[in-house]
């Protein structure tokens, strides 16, 4: 048997994590169970944060005032994925940057409810500024995935 000039060795690690969400994220997540998308408002600059935040990064003020949005938003940008990545959804899928109501910030979520028969044509079906609304899961646990996806408002 030939002696190799170069070798490589494989190893792996499996690590588990648990993240405390804090009061603001917990309240925001719990409202999703009731099909509500909340935002919280900075007392100083009046920006609305969706998803909620514990404090305004710009003014460094605690965000105590809550507002309930109607859940609709607009698409600020998006990408259609055509390549399968490990531990990611089956392509094609669309990820959007969605501004809920008049929020100062955006949410990342899927855009669905589109015709997927001709994958190449999906990008042309989505417009910047297009209005979208959430499609809710039947069983909700308090997680961004309680929203199945956002679909264009008819």
């Amino acid at each position: 048997m030939e002696t190799p000039s170069f070798m490589s060795k494989q190893y792996n690690m499996h690590l588990d994590f648990s993240l405390a969400l804090g009061a603001s994220f917990t309240k925001w997540m719990q409202a999703l169970k009731e099909k509500k998308i909340l935002g919280n408002t900075c007392p100083k600059c009046k920006r609305v944060f969706v998803p909620a935040k514990p404090f305004c990064e710009i003014c460094f003020e605690e965000l105590k005032d809550w507002v309930e949005t109607d859940g609709t938003g607009v698409v600020e940008s998006f990408t259609v994925t055509y390549q399968k990545f490990r531990n990611c959804p089956e392509p094609p899928y669309v990820v959007g940057i969605i501004r809920i109501g008049n929020a100062g910030t955006c949410m990342t979520h899927w855009i669905g409810g589109l015709d997927y028969k001709h994958p190449d044509e999906i990008p042309e079906k989505i417009k910047i500024g297009m209005k979208v609304e959430p499609v809710w899961k039947e069983e909700r646990v308090g997680d961004p995935l309680d929203i199945l996806y956002f679909k264009p408002v008819a």
């Binding site: 993240l19 990408t79 994925t81 959804p89 899928y93 990820v95 990342t108 961004p144 995935l145």
Partner: peptide, 17 residues
Amino acid sequence: PIFEKPFGIGAVHMGAF
């Protein structure tokens, strides 16, 4: 990890936005 990772976005998606 909670708000964005589940949606299947890596470096190329962020660039694509």
